[in-house]
Design a protein around this nucleic acid. Structure first.
Lengths: 333, 333
DNA sequence: CTGAAAGCGCTTACAG
DNA sequence: CTGAAAGCGCTTACAG
């Protein structure tokens, strides 16, 4: 039961105990069906007896497949990406691949650092939610694995992209709100390229449809519940109150509903609120929040499918995968 | 400018270009001050020219220091651990260490899998929020790195523990609520060992202080905003309405406030609500949420300090680090 | 301050 | 189906 155990058992120990070569043990580990049943049995026993745990650093070095994937997100708290990451981590873990998490924050140089770190670990893929600057792009071009940009669809992605059109989201929301009869929207935009594109899309369509001026307010990224107090306070100082507030996240939308109600306004009658992301709370809030559903799990699954496809050596099936979005009408707008 | 670049540049390429041995380049990379200034300069240039990115798989294998840390949490969404993970990832990244994220879910066997994966990658430390079963414990005992259990303080942790006493939290909350004059608490407990210990502490103290029966309700883990509807509906069917609901998270507390208000109850006058975790929304909600603050960032920093200390080869300074907690009185209870 | 060389623990053609 | 052997790209005593 108790080995001398001064050091970790290695492949050699297992091979010796099973009276086979290390090559055979390695094959058993990576592709069990190529070894004879009787041999496999002996190896299995030897592994159990030694308590062998394969050293994936060595394996990765020898095979130049690290079975690691780097996932880059700006932050964790109130993150709209959580479903994507969660699905990613779960599905990959099932396949023996682990997720290396990189928090890029808002500063673009952090993204470069994290990509460098990922490349240093020879990850099989980098999945990034961060829009790339020109410098980062150069770096990524040298990455031998698969680079997947998610949650947006740039014109000319360095690797492949899995996401949806933020401009179309903005447009659809504009069309929806006008058809509902709203006339004085307030657009609360977080810093960041994607939010800006949604806003542009909104304004474009809003005015193309004959809508008037669009009021705007800024919050820092990510747009959170806590932003609502200031936004609402500022709003009350406007010459004319907006009739609908378009938020960059369901969290902020929730915050605005709370503020409005605390001030005695009925939602949506006196103030409508629209969210983004369809997080779980959107359907559970009172009133339930009208929002835009993004299938974050599907983004993860498409990314993983692309990674698996890439692993076969085949060229990508598509450079851009559009998972679309769905406007969900509920009570708040 | 454009190398032939059929393969990644290696240490050898850099060494050759700088006319030094690979040993010297390696030293420059890991401990720059031991190489002569002039040599360092040549190496720096060679690195820039080749675009060399060190292969940390090889480095880790040779040095048996992977510069990776595995962080195990049950899930990402609405997670009370987000601050801890965020701080951890940020501080470690600054030191060139990366975080390998393991989502253990609720099933204990997933935890074992993730620990095995971490050991296979020869991580320097495993930081886990999951309470350990006997089987896992055996596994952990063989882990040569530092095992850190966080968010709780078990009697006899396999490595070290950084957390606080959940029992004391329960007791303090009981004492606080009785002193505030509440008499009919409803305890909403999530599944999971820690929540149970807080509940036990609460009930113990509540009754020691002469309080009567404590009503209880169950939710699955983690306790979320969305649980509130059912809990509130069930509550209304109780013979006598509770006067305070003690929640396992601020999210659930928020949900109950929303439900109560939607039903026309004033919080806290007709129904008080108490949260747990002091997430950002607790201070921003209306009414603001009375809760228990856990300094998640500090837990991360203490864990990192322990890892650094461990790296020097010294024995741990303490097996248990209690970061405490703070009851924060706000408006909701 | 620097170099030659062994070694870390695997994988993978190649040959049988 | 299996083995011998080279090689993956680093680090680190050891010696100078």
């Amino acid at each position: 039961m108790n080995e001398p155990s001064t050091r970790n058992p290695t492949l050699d120990d297992v091979a010796a105990l099973a009276s086979v070569s290390t090559a055979t043990v390695s094959r058993y580990l990576n592709n069990p069906k190529v070894v004879a049943a009787a041999t496999a049995e002996r190896i299995r026993e030897a592994i159990a007896q030694t308590g062998y745990i394969p050293n994936m650093l060595a394996g990765g070095l020898a095979s130049s497949k690290s079975k690691m994937v780097s996932v880059l997100i700006p932050h964790l708290t109130d993150s709209i990406f959580n479903d994507t990451i969660q699905t990613m981590a779960e599905e990959l873990a099932g396949a023996g691949t682990t997720v290396m998490m990189g928090l890029t924050g808002v500063a673009p140089e952090r993204t470069d650092e994290m990509i460098l770190a990922a490349m240093g670990r020879r990850v099989d893929a980098i999945i990034s939610t961060a829009p790339l600057g020109p410098q980062t792009r150069e770096l990524v071009e040298r990455f031998p694995g698969l680079f997947i940009q998610i949650w947006e669809l740039p014109e000319d992605p360095p690797g492949i992209a899995v996401g949806f059109s933020h401009r179309d989201v903005g447009r659809d929301v504009a069309r929806f709100l006008q058809s509902r009869g709203y006339r004085r929207p307030l657009l609360v935009t977080a810093e960041g390229a994607r939010a800006r594109i949604r806003s542009d899309g909104f304004i474009e369509e809003w005015q193309a449809l004959g809508g008037g001026e669009v009021a705007q307010a800024q919050v820092d990224i990510p747009s959170r519940f806590g932003h609502a107090r200031r936004i609402f306070a500022d709003m009350r100082r406007m010459a004319e109150l907006p009739d609908v507030v378009v938020c960059g996240s369901d969290y902020l939308a929730q915050g605005l509903i709370v503020e409005a109600q605390a001030a005695g306004l009925r939602v949506p009658d006196q103030l409508a609120v629209m969210g983004f992301g369809n997080s779980a709370l959107a359907g559970a809030m009172r009133p339930t929040i009208t929002t835009v559903d993004i299938d974050g799990s599907r983004i993860a699954r498409e990314a993983i499918a692309a990674i698996r496809h890439h692993a076969t050596g085949a060229p990508p099936l598509a450079r851009s995968i559009d998972v679309g979005f769905r406007l969900i009408e509920r009570e708040s707008a």
